[in-house]
Design a protein around this nucleic acid. Sequence first.
DNA 1: TATTATATAGTGTATTACACAGTATTGTCA
DNA 2: TGACAATACTGTGTAATACACTATATAATA
Lengths: 112, 112
Amino acid sequence: MEKDLLEGLLSELRRGTLVLCVLSQLREARYGYSLIQSLEGKGVSIDANTLYPLLRRLEQQGLLCSEWNTEEAKPRKYYKRTVYGDNIFAELVKQWNCLSASMSELLGGMEN
Amino acid sequence: MEKDLLEGLLSELRRGTLVLCVLSQLREARYGYSLIQSLEGKGVSIDANTLYPLLRRLEQQGLLCSEWNTEEAKPRKYYKRTVYGDNIFAELVKQWNCLSASMSELLGGMEN
DNA sequence: TATTATATAGTGTATTACACAGTATTGTCA
DNA sequence: TGACAATACTGTGTAATACACTATATAATA
């Protein structure tokens, strides 16, 4: 079975950033399928089978709220950040910048 | 039990970067305990109970090799990257830079 | 019309890996 | 001697992604 090692490590690397990516796009309401393509276009590929459970989880945690729109051709479930979600998101961004800076420092001096 | 939500998300954020942090420090041989403090000093805090299993896992995956040094006062287990580890590490750094750039773009236009 | 593909969302399971708490040993220093 | 720091290991619980599968409605195509 043994999935390719590098692939696994890269998955891990992207793992924590998924929430950040998703939250960043949900200031305005959007539905899952459009998110996938929108993120894909920006160089972040997320599997549908990963996104949908993630959206529901974030909603259950109170970071997102959702609403079905049945007026359009196909029924779509729109998600967007709650106020709480806004706050958490802001804090995550701050910490991300911090982490990112630490990493640059660690990886920068690679000739050591 | 419900651990604090923000804490959990931050853990997730750091999670994938741990391997990268650790690998970055192991061009030269080092033992676990010194790694913890060295990383701590650089703003990356990693729990001992997280690091030791991680080191053994990376060794088992062939990215690190280890050696006991019993000549010093206390017996220490030194780890360092293998050639394979060097290659994987280089690739991870590349992907990290890529990911980092994508994130900047996503988070940059936060007034949208 | 029948068939296929695309858009859209859900569920269930297995794997993985960190976190946490506890154990164990050996030096050092008061 | 007793307490504490240095050093490493293990086992268990939890949390989250990945993967494969299901399901529906609409658009496209043969």
